[in-house]
Structures are given as structure tokens and as C-alpha cells.
Amino acid sequence: MNEETRENLIDMSVNLGGLKMQNPVAVASGTFGYGREYQDFIDISRIGAVIVKGTTLEERCGNPAPRIYETPAGMLNAIGLENPGIDVFLNVYLPSLIEDRVTVIANIAGNTVDEYALLSRKIDKHPGIAGIELNISCPNVKQGGMQFGTDPDLVKQVVEAVKSETSLPVIPKLSPNVTDIVSIARAARDGGADALSMINTLMGMAVDIDRRKPVLGNIFGGLSGPAIKPVALRMIYQVYKEVDLPILGGGGILNTRDALEFIMAGASAVSIGTGNFVNPVVAEEIALGLEKYVTEQGLTGINELVGAAVL
């Protein structure tokens, strides 16, 4: 087969539990604002999916400063879900994303199970959103957030409540701050999740030795970046083996090689988070890099590589 015919047969699109992406690369919630922040640097319609900033029912002001701190090969953040609330997101930020033909995944966070349900109902009524990522793993808010993601019963409850309000694909984002990630993933599946997003940040902290105080205003923050990549890969590998759901995998991905590791460990698609800060066009570069790899390997699509390294 010559090169041209083969390229025509290559399919880089991904179906993530009913959520269709033109390529396997998404940008992670909280690292890409509402897309517009990066529009000067990258054609956001070429990104597989834009997972917008975590949205709550009411406006949230976020945590006191400092909110971020660089650590070895990573960073801590404790933003505290600063956002203008679901109605402002739907009415002010979403329309331009729809106009630009961006595949938008909403990310929602509630203080209660009912809030998750209400947020989903509002989104379901509003055309233009491709799927809902459930933030049940934010380490930086006092109520809700991670407490939902660390208890299998609550995970199941939240997912069930959301599924009953929407026909959109529902993708819980799992917290790595648990003893047994597989039991959490199973609970999400039992609640009716269509796919899993993993992993959120690892809880950490830093100390300012001059002030003899924690660096972050919130004391604790979420660790992200290349530092957490091995942890993310391990958890995705474990869940891929045990739970039959597509995985949106991420954690410190900076380049195509990193993305391939995640796919071979079991991720059907990947998400870029902290990497966007380092290189604003990294999502597009990785999408092209993956296509090149698939072509060079003589494969027909990225799907052939999912879980390829799982023994």
C-alpha cells in the first residue's frame, strides 16, 4: 500500500463513551479557561475537545493567594474553583465556543448530589455541549469536591443522579487521592458512567522556610505536571484492566511520547493540563504527532494502540 492510500484509511477520531472527538487530544479543565484565553495562540477548533473551567451553580471567588507554586517538574495549585457560575458560563462563554465549532465538555462541581443533578439539567437543556465531566476530585474546596470522589457510595450516587438528568455522555474525573482507584472506578461504572477521566491532581503542599508558613494560601494544593505522570499511568493501567469503560487519561503529558504512554497504558484519549502553560500549542502538536506515529506504524487508527502495553 502506498503512503497516500494508507493516510486516507487512517482514522484519528475517538468515541469516548458516545462522545465523539475528531482527534484523541483534549485540554483539561482549569488549564484552558473557556478556550478564548488561548485563541491568539492556537486554533481551538482543532483540539479534540476543550474541557472548560470547572463550573458551580453559583459564582465562586476562589482561594486566597498565593494559589500556585512551582515544584520539581510540576506545580501546585489551589485555585478553589473560581468561576462565574453555570448561567454565566452557558449564556456568556459557551456561545462563541459553539460558533467556533469547538467540541466542548462541561466540567461541573457541586456541594451536594442535588447540585450535580441541577447543574446537569441546566446543561442538558442547553444545546452545544458534547459531554459532562464530573469534578468529584477537586482537592481545593472545603465542601464537596474531593469528598465525593473518595467514597465509592457517593461516587455511584452522584453519577446516578447526573445520568438521570441528562442523555449526554457523563465522565467522572477520578481523584488519585484514594487507596483503591479500581473500587472508585467500579462505583462510577455502576452508577452509569459512560467514560472515566483520570487523574485529577495529587494533594500536596510546600513550605516557605523564610516565613515558616505554608506557601499556598489554602495550605494544601493539587500537584500536577510531569512529576505525577508515573502515578497517572499506573492508575490508568489498573483501571483499564478491571473496568470496561473508555478512559480519558492525563497527568503531566508534555509531548507525543507521553501521550503514547497513556494510550498504551489504556487511555482511549488523552488530556493536556499543565502542559498548556508550558506550550500553548501542545494539544495540536500532540494530535499531529499521534497521527504521524499511527501512519509510520502502518496502523489504521489510534484505537489499535489503546492498552497495547497492558499485560
Binding site: G62, I68, N77, I79, F277
Partner: peptide, 8 residues
């Protein structure tokens, strides 16, 4: 660029 809300 205003995306991460880190420098509040």
C-alpha cells in the same frame, strides 16, 4: 494569559 487563575 488568564486561563489558570493562579495569579489572583
Amino acid at each position: 494569559v488568564g486561563a489558570c487563575l493562579g495569579c489572583a
